[in-house]
Structure formats: structure tokens, C-alpha cells
Amino acid sequence: MRGAPTTGGNETGFRRADARPPLTPTLSRKGRSGILLSLLLLLLLAFPAVAVEPEEMLKDPVLETRAREISRNLRCLVCQNQSIDDSNAQLAKDLRVIVRERLTAGDSDTEVIAFVRARYGDFVLLKPPVTGATAVLWLAPAGILLLAGIGVLLFLRRRKSGPATPAPLTAAEKKRLDELGGGDAA
């Protein structure tokens, strides 16, 4: 019966909840918690994806940590939104090896980054440096916040003073009001 059309079970066309077996198999409470537990255990297997291959790694753990840190901040120009630490592209692999070679040769972190930057430009840095071209990018959030702050301040100050009370009616206005009110007397 499973998989049969769901309508037409009775004359009205409405299906009663208990009329036929449910379309999806139900599980016992025990079976359900078992599945939940195995799903949670599967989550433990979810390591962050990293492209660094074992033979690339340096034996010195201090240097390797520095290499990883540098690699995470260098863009892979082939995939553009991945760092060379995450990317499997050949260029990313070559650059990872170069980073490690330079560190082994005694370069400082800044020197290694400068080496790559001299070849690929600022775009290779995942965090753009403050230059003339990127000033707008860096200053815009602060500028917008400042403008919004000034706006809010002005608004609050105006609200505090409350709505202005209208000036008392002048003699001429009183006269006009009387005229309007007593139209039939005119």
C-alpha cells in the first residue's frame, strides 16, 4: 500500500490520520537516538580542509608554524578567494614551498611576505594594506559611522527641546478666528 495515491482513501477525499500507514518509516525512540549519536560522531571527523602536504612540512615545528601563519595570509592568485594554505593549485603549492625555503634560509616573516609581494603585488595579500588606492576602503566605515553619529546626535538634541510651542495669536488672527466662528453674524 505504501506509495499509493494519498487521496481517494474515503468518499470525501480527505485522508484520516490513522487510515493508512505513514509514508515514511517511523523509528523507535532508541533507533532515533542511535542515528543522532552516529551523526554527532561523524561531525568529529570534520577536520578543517588544509592543502599542505606532509612532505612540504618543515621538521622544525616553530618554522612550520610561522610558514602556516604566512601562508594563511597570502592569496592564491589562481583561485583568488583561497589562501595558498587552503589551495590545491600548483602555484599555491610552489609558493608554500618557497615560503618554507626562505624561512629555512633565515628570512624574517616580513622578508618572506615582501618576496612574494615583489612578484605578485598587493593583491597577493589577503588583508589589503592601507595605500592611496585602498584608503577609501579603510576609511569609509569610520566615515559612515561618524556621519551617522552626527545625525543621531542632531536628532536627539532636537527631540530633547521638544516641539516648539506656537506663538500666541495676534490680534488680527483673533479677529479672523471670530469671523470664521461667527459666520452667520456677519
Partner: peptide, 13 residues
Amino acid sequence: RKGRVSIDFGVYG
């Protein structure tokens, strides 16, 4: 062969 000169030229593809 190792792609090093390409990297020195800033070649990325």
C-alpha cells in the same frame, strides 16, 4: 621545469 622563473615573473596562469 620547476616553475620558479615563472614565479619570479609574477606569472599565475
